[in-house]
């Protein structure tokens, strides 16, 4: 069966080659641009074109030129032109010039002063979303208002260019831009404060209670941690029990009220970061 298959395939190849002379397909077709196929011979026939996104069937007179519209060849890839009486030719349509940049910038939020945390991936496409596989220079630019942006030109490979970058020291909206010629795509990466640094609190007697308040909470780069961040105040009095409050940062500081227990140890923490410790004497 395999030998028969092979034999027939060889015959078919020769037969197609004989008929192929009837069709002159475009050699440098570009996606989204029209092209034409010239035919030879005489008499009427049916023309078929199959390719990505396309399946045409047209009656024509041999010897005429078949016009293919920009829409017929919208997509890059392999096309096959065939005639019903036999004869076929294949040709490639390549992507057009860059018209779109599909820019995936991640993450949308990033803590400050971290290396290689921002990634940008650009897919270079033509106007019909065909991937441009020829190497293309993509310029990546990352910067925050008030400071000079960093720019890096990179060559795309197989239609893709990518970059990894670190976050800056200042919080704020960083503009992340990718461009090819005059086409550009812009994303925003919000640089946010990192973990609290040097977390400190002070305690003050308030009748039967203690008023606890942190100093303004900042990360190690001096950025204020955002409001709503959880700060845990604890009071431990050995066998006399303990009390805790998960307070929220408001206007840069966190506050809590705990019962006053002389001799108790007061601690403060935010996430996995520990702050200072106070031995409560009872407010004396």
């Amino acid at each position: 069966m395999k030998i028969l298959g092979l034999f027939l395939a060889i015959i078919l190849t020769f037969a197609s080659a004989a008929f192929a002379q009837d069709l002159q397909v475009p050699q440098n077709a570009v996606a989204g641009e029209g092209a034409s196929i010239s035919t030879s011979g005489s008499g009427s026939a049916t023309f078929y074109l199959t390719g990505p996104g396309t399946s045409l069937k047209r009656d024509f007179k041999r010897g005429e030129t078949i016009s293919l519209s920009a829409d017929d060849l919208a997509y890059a890839g392999r096309y096959t032109a065939a005639l019903d009486g036999g004869g076929a030719q294949s040709f490639f349509v390549t992507a057009a010039k860059p018209a779109k940049l599909n820019f995936m910038a991640r993450p949308s939020r990033v803590p400050v002063a971290h290396p290689d945390v921002i990634s940008g991936v650009v897919f270079v496409l033509d106007r019909n979303d065909n991937l441009i596989t020829t190497p293309t220079t993509v310029n990546f630019q990352l910067g925050i208002a008030g400071s000079a942006p960093t720019t890096r030109p990179l060559q795309s490979k197989n239609g893709i260019a990518w970059i990894k970058a670190g976050s800056g020291n200042r919080e704020g909206a960083a503009q992340f831009t990718a461009s090819v010629g005059d086409i550009s795509a812009k994303r925003v990466v919000q640089q946010v404060a990192s973990d609290p640094c040097n977390l400190r609190m002070k305690a003050q007697a308030d009748g039967k209670n203690i008023q606890l308040q942190t100093e303004p909470i900042k990360d190690c780069s001096g950025n204020a941690v955002p409001d709503g961040t959880i700060v845990t105040f604890s009071e431990s009095a050995g066998g006399r029990g303990r009390s805790t409050v998960d307070a929220r940062v408001k206007h840069g500081v966190a506050r809590a009220t705990l019962p006053s227990v002389p001799g108790a140890t007061l601690t403060v923490a935010s996430g996995v970061v520990l702050g200072n410790e106070i031995r409560w004497s009872g407010g004396q």
Binding site: G241, R242, S243, T244, V245, R248, A256, T257, L258
Partner: peptide
């Protein structure tokens, strides 16, 4: 919402 804040007192 960041509210409410619940204190846990006299734990033993």
């Amino acid at each position: 919402a960041a509210d409410p804040v619940v204190g846990v007192f006299n734990q033993r």
